[in-house]
Design a protein around this nucleic acid. Structure first.
Length: 204
DNA sequence: TCCACGATCGGCT
DNA sequence: GCCGATCGTGGAG
């Protein structure tokens, strides 16, 4: 499937955040391929007090100020990583946090990354309807499943290691827009987007 | 230098 | 529903 072009990313961040829903995140590691349909995102803008870029360029956030179409991974809470897609043109400092994906390929590797075990039918990762749930339904979980850490921060999504492709069409009526999670400022902005009814969306 | 805190998760009650 | 884990980051001093 076709890799999304640079021009997909270098646009209005709120539009990109919505259009990322339904796209497929792919990572190649050795012989394995990990893939998941993006089902939940959050936008972080340049004049947004909740954004890491709000106070300007730092060593950590310089990737956010690079050109759109790069990966920005940061470390938080002393034990978690979160993955973002940089948007807009160079110098802007905007990104979209990937909050949840629905696993479609490399599920055994994801389970291994998450739990150290390699069991396809590990109940821990199944919902009561038998769907995968605890694997990638949260920003730190998805980063862990895909093995993303600060080593991957700055990766160009137009190279063939980590990239996005066209996935499923998501009708506008299926996109829910609501407030972001885990922040104490700009809490009124409805910049979290998810696909209505998807089992892999994070809880709140 | 130092220190308060975070775009969270999982386990326990 | 609540709480502890755990440390990089960046603003203050």
């Amino acid at each position: 499937m076709r890799t999304l072009p640079r021009s997909f990313y270098t646009r209005n961040t709120l539009i990109v955040a919505k259009e990322l829903l339904g796209k497929i995140l792919v990572r190649k590691i050795g012989k394995s391929q990990l893939a998941g349909i993006i089902v939940e995102t959050e936008a972080y803008l340049h004049n947004d007090p909740a954004s890491h870029s709000y106070r300007g360029i730092t060593e950590r956030t310089k990737v956010m100020f690079g050109n759109g179409g790069h990966l920005y991974v940061y470390f938080t809470y002393g034990m978690h990583h979160c993955a973002n897609i940089v948007t807009q043109k160079e110098g802007r400092g905007e990104a979209v946090l990937l909050r949840a994906v629905e696993p479609i390929d490399g599920i055994d590797v994801m389970m291994k990354n998450r739990s150290g075990r390699n069991e396809i039918n590990n109940d821990r990762h199944l919902s009561d309807t038998g769907h995968l749930k605890n694997l990638t339904n949260g920003p730190a979980k998805l980063a862990q499943s895909f093995g993303l850490s600060r080593n991957e921060s700055g990766t160009d999504l137009l190279e063939n290691k980590i990239y996005l492709t066209e996935g499923i069409a998501v009708p506008k009526s299926q996109i829910i827009s609501t407030t972001r999670i885990g922040i104490n400022v700009a809490t009124e902005k409805k910049w979290r987007f998810y696909i209505k009814g998807n089992v892999c969306v994070s809880k709140p």
